[in-house]
Design a protein around this nucleic acid. Structure first.
Lengths: 329, 329
DNA sequence: CTGAAAGCGCTTACAG
DNA sequence: CTGAAAGCGCTTACAG
């Protein structure tokens, strides 16, 4: 590999001058500059990132901690983050916890040793240990999707969006509304969305039957199984609508319903959250809410950039959303 | 940040010893080791990656150049690559060309300056300039999805898979088969799949009508528009089947067909390639071929690891695939 | 079993 | 306008 010393020698200047030329810092004589430019061109020289980092403490890399790398939401968010980071000439280091909370901490440490300039965390929990880790953390961390105490967080409007879905269902005359959720260890998807469900039911004096509620694990299959449990467990008192906290689980639920010959929304209405592309193309098309994940990615990206620059804006922000009414309700 | 010097001081040894302890290289006394371990624990010390890289020339990072970051195929592939890289303790740097061929070269250079230990390239072309760039490249590059001359490449069996689709269509009695493809600048998706289509038609003495063929750009919308062009342009001689080179375009095509009241596969059969999750859940479910993207990701990952280790195996490999017969044909 | 010393490729005061 | 020198945090012969 050619180094700055090679360039200096070939151009007949000191490496100090080459460095100045490269970074546009300080004066470089016309003639010297031209010689340097030419040599760089000929050799295809690129400064060593690690040497630069060692000196400047800046890597130009930010880390993203994802719950699951191969997910529609993840890739939309990453795409948004990537857009703003590219603008700043920064690179992205991806990390995948596979839904294991311990790995969130593990990767935080890993990204520290890689000297990421900042970290965007898409957590699935907000545990004590995680908070402590971040508190003592030497590099800026922002969160997306979960409101982590003490950490600048951009969250989705889980409660409001879920309330809107419930409102829509109830407005359409549904009274026996079931629910397919995820574990409450997940504050955003597990707790908040379920809270909106039970609150809405109570507000309208509707009965919340335990047997109308089932838990999945985000997967399409788990939605299918959850729906099956709800149906087989309530032969005599079937719900007439089901609110699923993700589109994937809603897709599975619909699959089961269709297999069993139920008409959607005639017999049972179904709604989800997330607006996966699939939601639009399955039959019937799925009523859901769009979270603008890509824009959310851009927004956390900007948040991170700001906190890296030392700007302390309002620490908590909620991202916009939009209810998408389609044919499943 | 605590450095190796701090640790050495706190543990009352030289930094040489700390380094040996860290890397398990050479002897470290029992007692010294214990003291070091304790200090490291207390301080949460992590060695600086950039300093290590500067010395050893290894970053522990591999770069991936993706045509589009937020795509189902991409995220599956990345997930597979990630699995093998994680096993090796390596990290992934993601890069997105947004389908711009110039950026493939740009990112190659960027990853060089970041001293990636290796690069996995998901190209959309195999142009001269790209080949030259790679030829002179100081770090190992492997390709996935395109067969790039001179570069170890893992490709999908585009021709065979497409032939299988055609075989299926023809076997079901279809004779007037249309085609929705992408630009032929893409050798794998554009050329090979189209070649299989025309070859199959000719082999069976079936007429290939220009007006039955349309080009899209991978998007669902473009599939919709392509189908529209085919239908509106052939009112008197409609095809009775359409082979779409991607599931997303097939989805768009089906959408148009359904809107227009055509029955699928009664009036027009539709097939795709890729086995997007959506393929299974749209109505009718889509006949397609599964490319095992995640395993392909693992496989290129291994290929890269091997070529990084200096192993020169057979440079060209084709990944397995499976025809998935569903209800759209 | 352990340490002093050199060096990886840069940047940045400092001096001229 | 330009260069010599120090130093970033490691690892690795080498010597003991």
């Amino acid at each position: 590999m050619t180094t700055i010393n090679d360039i200096a020698k070939l151009a007949g200047v000191s490496r100090t001058t080459v460095s100045r030329f490269l970074n546009n810092s300080g004066y470089v004589g016309q003639e010297a500059g031209e010689r340097i430019a030419q040599v760089i061109n000929e050799t295809g020289y690129m400064p060593s990132q690690s040497a630069q980092t060692l000196r400047t403490k800046k890597t130009g890399v930010i880390g993203i901690i994802l719950p699951k790398i191969s997910t529609e939401t993840s890739s939309r968010v990453v795409s948004g983050i990537n857009r703003v980071m590219k603008r700043e000439g920064m690179q992205i280091l991806l990390t995948d916890t596979e839904l294991d909370p311990d790995k969130e901490i593990e990767y935080l440490r890993l990204l520290k040793s890689r000297q990421a300039d900042g970290i965007i965390l898409l957590a699935t929990n907000i545990g004590e240990r995680l908070q402590q880790e971040i508190e003592a953390f030497p590099i800026p961390v922002v969160a997306l999707g979960q409101n982590i105490p003490g950490v600048p967080s951009l969250t989705y409007a889980d409660y409001d969006a879920s309330s809107d879905i419930m409102q829509l269902l109830i407005g359409k005359g549904h009274r026996k509304i079931g629910f397919i959720g995820v574990s409450e260890t997940d504050p955003a998807v597990g707790k908040l969305r379920q809270g909106a469900y039970t609150d809405a039911m109570k507000r309208h004096n509707l009965e919340v039957k335990e047997s109308w509620m089932a838990e999945g694990d985000f997967s399409i299959d788990s939605g299918y199984e959850a729906m099956k449990r709800i149906i087989t467990g309530n032969r005599s008192a079937l719900p007439d609508a089901v609110f699923c906290v993700t589109d994937r689980m809603a897709t599975g639920a619909m699959e089961y319903l269709k297999e069993q010959g139920f008409s959607i929304p005639g017999d049972v209405a179904v709604a989800g959250i997330g607006d996966a592309v699939m939601a639009r193309y399955i039959t019937p098309s799925l009523t859901t809410v769009n979270y603008y994940n890509e824009e959310a990615g851009e927004a956390v990206g900007e948040m991170l950039l700001e906190t890296m620059a030392g700007i302390k804006h309002s620490k908590k922000m909620m991202h916009k959303y939009r209810l998408i009414k389609r044919d499943s309700v």
